[in-house]
Write a protein that binds this DNA or RNA. Structure first.
Lengths: 140, 140
DNA sequence: CCTAAAATCTAGAATTATTATAAAATCAGA
DNA sequence: TCTGATTTTATAATAATTCTAGATTTTAGG
């Protein structure tokens, strides 16, 4: 029975990544979150209780994790990249009021038929971005 | 029978925008394109034959056009915002090889049932991002 | 046509997110 | 423990975008 720490270490190693305290911390942070943090969000969180990583290393660790397909980027906001350890197919809801982003399970919107798109494209997947207002931003 | 230039002018006025050569040029440029240019792409294009606009003004014009719902942003690439004068609902294909972006007509992927999402959300729309390889990036 | 007020443009400075860099530190296998 | 390769660090650099104050332009009314 592996602890979560051991699982993370095993996972990093299995993807050919050297296990450093910073990579561990970044990945553990992302695995423990439901939101989609920016690099700066992660940095602040990591260094909350103890100096864990430099800013450059957070970026570097994120790139390594992305290269290993353990983390993906989420482009739903201008000017900044957000990250997600949930790399399985899923969709997003984006609130147009406050900007909040929520995950939508894959199956919920998995009924699209992509066969009729262009015969020139080799389709590998899709995701849906739903826009609207979250409950806090709705008026009356 | 209005010329295209007159149509653009009328459109800008109808949206409460002052008609300046720069706004006209930016909007005309976007209307004449099928791709999704960056602000810099637009700037280079505009100033190709004659000095038309400064960089700051291209950004400013794009913001004004967006505020008037004549132009929308497209967030499919890290680090840069792309723009589109096609503001009707439509979807995008994104090539994972070269990064090319293509429009997909709305009706093609309009069959999603959003009723089963969260009762807390007031849904206003959705768009689908399809990923794959374009014909040029596919190998043999 | 003129005028004036408001809006917009300009060009360079400033800001922000991210990447580059060279030296120091660390990882992991022998 | 040693060692070579990799990673981290802190700062500089870069690129996309916004800010700013003075100059210029638009536009409505006379």
């Amino acid at each position: 029975m592996l602890s979560q720490a051991d699982q993370i270490i095993t996972t990093l190693k299995s993807r050919g990544l050297r296990v450093t305290p910073q990579r561990f911390a970044v990945y553990a942070n992302l695995l423990g979150r439901c939101d989609h943090p920016t690099a700066d969000d992660i940095l602040s969180d990591l260094n909350q209780d103890a100096p864990t990583s430099s800013q450059a290393t957070v970026y570097s660790s994120l790139q390594a994790l992305r290269g290993a397909n353990l983390v993906r980027e989420v482009l739903l906001e201008e000017g900044v990249c957000r990250y997600d350890a949930n790399i399985g197919p899923h969709h997003h809801f984006r609130c147009q009021g406050c900007g909040a982003i929520a995950d939508i399970p894959w199956e919920t919107l998995s009924s699209l038929n992509l066969q009729t798109l262009s015969p020139h494209w080799q389709i590998e997947g899709y995701e849906v971005t739903v826009r609207g207002l979250c409950d806090r931003c709705q008026v009356g």
